[in-house]
Design a protein around this nucleic acid. Sequence first.
DNA 1: GTCTATAGAGTGATAGAC
DNA 2: GTCTATCACTCTATAGAC
Lengths: 187, 187
Amino acid sequence: MARIVFEKSDAIALVAEVFRELGYEGASMSEITARTKLSKGSLYHFFPGGKEQMAAEIMAHIDAWFATEMFGPLEKEAPRAAIARMWETTDSYFRSGRRVCLIGAFALDETRDRFPAAIRGYFHRWIDALAGALTRTGLPGAAAKALAEEAVIGIQGALTLARALGDDTIFGRTLARLKRTLEAASG
Amino acid sequence: MARIVFEKSDAIALVAEVFRELGYEGASMSEITARTKLSKGSLYHFFPGGKEQMAAEIMAHIDAWFATEMFGPLEKEAPRAAIARMWETTDSYFRSGRRVCLIGAFALDETRDRFPAAIRGYFHRWIDALAGALTRTGLPGAAAKALAEEAVIGIQGALTLARALGDDTIFGRTLARLKRTLEAASG
DNA sequence: GTCTATAGAGTGATAGAC
DNA sequence: GTCTATCACTCTATAGAC
C-alpha cells in the first residue's frame, strides 16, 4: 500500500485552501479528501474533532500568521515602515485579490455562530494594531481608529468585489487608494 | 387541515432570507421548509429546478428591486438627490448592517461559479449607475467611476465587518463617511 | 515485535429531488 | 412521504519507523 506522510501543518494549509474556496458548508469531507489527497484516516488522525476542529485550527493558524507578519510589526516597529509593509503583506497574502479572506467569508453566514470569538478577534486585532501604529505617527486616537477601520473595510470590500467581478485589478487599486488616504492623514 | 396559500413572490422573499442567513450550501431543504413553513410540495411547485432555481429567482428579484429603487433613479433623476436617496435606501435595505448582501456572500465561495453573470451584473450595474449620476454632477468620468467603485467596496466591506464584529454602528458610520467623500468630490 | 500514520470500505443520518 | 446520493464520521487493516 502506497503511503505518503504529511506534517500536520501541511494538512492545515491544504485543508485551509479547500475551506477558502468552498466555504465551511460547501467543503464536504469527500471534496477535502479529493482536493488535498489526504485520506479520511489522516484527516481524522490530525483532526479528531472533524470539520469543526479543522476550521478552528485553520483560523488559529491564520491568526498566528497575521500576528507574526503584520500585527506584531504594527505594534512594535517604526509605524510608517510597518504600515508600508502591511500593504505589501496584504497584497501578497490575498494574491492581489484572487484569494478570498476565509475569516471574512465565515463571518457572512451562520458559520459565524460557530466561531464568533475567533472571527471577532481577528478583525479587532487587525484594526487595533493598525490604529496603534497610526497613533504612533502622531494621529489622535479617534482619527487613527477611524482610519484603521476604513482600511480593513476597504480590504474586505475589495476582496468581495474583485471576486464578484472576476477583476484582478480592483484589489491593487484599492490598496493603493487606502495607502494614499492613510499617508495623507498621518503626514 | 389548516392550509396556507402563498404567492410565488412571497415564497421568493421567504426563501431569500434563509439563503441570506445560511448561504447557498448551508441552506438545506429541511431548513428552508422549517423556516419558511412552506412544504416541500409548495417549494417544488414554485421552483421545479430546486435550490438552483430558487437562488436564481431570488437574485433576479433582488436585481429587479435594486433596478427600481436605486439604479433607475441614479440613471434618470437629479443626480444629487438620487445619490442622497441611495444612502437611505442602502441603509434601510441592509437594516443598518444587520442584514448581509446575499449576492456579495455568494461571490465569496464556489456559489459564484453557479451564477457568475447574475453576480457580475448586479455589481456592475450598481457601480455604473452611481458613476453615471456622479458624472452628471460634473465629475470627470474616470473620477466618477473610481468613486462609485469606492462606495460599493465600502458598503460590502462594512457589511462584512459589521457582521464579523457584531457591531451595529459600523454600517451607518461607513455610509456617512462615504457620503461625505462623494459630496466633497462632487461639490 | 510495538507504535503511529494512512488507507479506504463501511456506518447511520440526512441531503436534495420528485 | 419516498427515493437515491451523499453527508460527516468510524473502524479495521496495514505500511513503515523503530
